[in-house]
Amino acid sequence: MKNKNMTYLDTVHRDGTIWNLIVMVLLLAFPVLVAVIFRAAPDWQGVLLGLLSTAPMYWAVGVIEVISFVPMLGAGGSYLSFVTGNISNLKLPCALNALESHGVNPQTEEGDIVSTISIAVSSIVTTVIIILGVILIIPLTPILKNDLLEPAFAQLLPALFGALGVVFISKHVKIAIAPIALMLILFIFVPFINTSTVGIMVPVGVLFTIAVSRILYKKGIL
């Protein structure tokens, strides 16, 4: 397996590719195995119509997510994140926080290591907590779906991005003004841009910010 000419990052890409392909095959095997075990063919018309209603948008968003998240997550972090999911609400903030406290860039080897470690730990903890949740579902349901706690869980994202926003916006005030103004206008005044479309608005925000930064940079303002 070892190849002397490979850099550390090359081995990350090689191992990541192998792992992701294994997981992909397993995920595809799940519906197939259920079908075989219970001798039940899928309702192909339902599958087709279901896919038509979801896949075009999800696939487009998926492609844009890969392009916009990979540069922030680093190599190892990307392979893990796109398997374990919950990227923008968990893995990416976790990695950003770690990169920030080490003062490293995810494109460097150190940055890749820090990002990978934080995302791996986050994935392990998430998986274990969900397992505990599934095992303890009966005693947990009344606690977690309790009227008192429900508002707290409903506001996880504002609580997360308030704190994270302060850290990053204070460092990049000039970069942040235009995209934040744009997003506020879009989210407040455009009815079809709402809480359920934030997944699409992340890449929009990223592309817009890069464009504005490039202009400001060329004009010597940044």
């Binding site: 916009s68 540069p71 922030m72 923008s88 990416l92 950003l96 860039n105 995810p106 494109q107 994202l157 504002p158 991005f161 308030g162 994270l164 926003g165 990053f168 916006i169 460092k171 990049h172 970069i175 942040a176 995209p179 934040i180 744009l182 997003m183 506020l184 879009l186 989210f187 407040i188 841009i193 709402n194 809480t195 934030v198 608005m201 992340v202 929009v204 925000g205 990223v206 592309l207 817009f208 910010t209 890069i210 504005v212 930064s213 940079y217 940044l222």
Partner: peptide, 22 residues
């Protein structure tokens, strides 16, 4: 460096907007 900062800010700005959506 600016590009890296822009990526982070771009993502954060979308979530700042999201918070104000209602």
């Amino acid at each position: 460096d600016i590009l890296q900062g822009s990526l982070f800010i771009g993502m954060i700005s979308a979530f700042v907007g999201y918070v104000f959506s209602d």
